[in-house]
């Protein structure tokens, strides 16, 4: 219990910290609102000609985008940058002899920031959704907690993915290219529109990869909620979280060894 409590403390402190840097957080908020605004306009024109595209109504597509953007923009790329920089400038050395797990430390340290952004972005996103397209079709308040779980676990998965990419800095000086690539693959995983609109073969590949469980799966589950879909999706999310956590630990251990061999 004590072991977990320290990450909880880190998390609480990081919430306080993120409240101090209001300006970067406000710009993030504006940008989120802006992207949603663009999508509302884009899809409005597209849906002038059709009622239904790949099984999605205008209302559903907009709420879909509100959710996917909410997850990715709230997560941001900070965890990737801190881990990469720690490794590149050698600060990681100070973290090695601390009595915590470096990966967990970073995740909880970022969670504070993420939760704050998530909260405010959600207010904006939900408000815009209500104003422009009305509430989600077939929305049931009972499912709200489950929807929240979808989003939180998606963010968790996203953080762990980015942390793994950050750890590549042990071997690659210029690893931001990897970050871009993962970000863009995420995009193929259904960031801007549901995978259902893509050709079958791409959809099939995307559904196997973890990226679609950050964006597509949770967003689709939320706009077309049924308990069965939710359980499946959540199961896969949790599995991926566990698998990637183990992968992170392995990469980290290997990386630390690599430092020791090269002498930092």
């Amino acid at each position: 219990m004590v072991k977990i409590k320290k990450y909880w403390t880190v998390f609480k402190i990081s919430i306080q910290n993120s409240l101090i840097y209001t300006s970067s957080f406000v710009t993030g908020l504006i940008f989120y609102a802006f992207i949603i605004f663009i999508f509302i306009n884009l899809w409005r024109v597209i849906y002038l000609k059709k009622e239904l595209i790949a099984g999605f109504t205008y209302n559903q597509v907009i709420w879909y985008c509100i959710v996917t953007e909410l997850i990715t923009i709230s997560t941001g790329g900070n965890i990737f940058r801190t881990i990469s920089n720690d490794i590149k400038n050698g600060a990681i050395g100070y973290n090695l002899n601390k009595p915590y797990n470096y990966i967990f430390y970073n995740i909880s340290n970022n969670m504070g920031n993420v939760v704050i952004r998530l909260f405010f972005n959600a207010i904006i996103g939900i408000a815009m959704g209500f104003i422009f397209v009305g509430r989600i079709q077939g929305f049931d308040v009972i499912y709200l907690p489950l929807m929240l779980i979808c989003i939180i676990s998606a963010i968790f998965l996203n953080l762990i993915l980015f942390s793994a990419v950050g750890l590549t800095a042990f071997w690659f000086e210029e690893n931001s290219a990897f970050f871009w690539i993962v970000q863009k693959v995420m995009f193929m995983g259904g960031l801007f529109f549901p995978l259902d609109m893509m050709p079958g073969w791409i959809r099939n590949i995307a559904l196997v990869l973890p990226f679609s469980y950050v964006t597509y799966a949770p967003a689709r589950t939320i706009v077309k909620f049924n308990p069965n879909d939710f359980s499946w999706m959540f199961l896969i999310q949790v599995t991926y979280i566990l698998v990637l956590l183990i992968l992170n630990m392995l990469i980290f251990r290997k990386g630390v060894k690599a430092i020791n061999v090269n002498g930092g």
Binding site: S176, W180, M197
Partner: peptide
């Protein structure tokens, strides 16, 4: 970096291709 940027852009091409395929 150059390749990363070009790749980045290629994904947007893909985005529009999907959108126009559907609409």
């Amino acid at each position: 970096q150059v390749l990363g940027m070009a790749l980045n852009n290629a994904f947007f091409l893909f985005f529009w291709w999907i959108v126009f395929n559907n609409t």
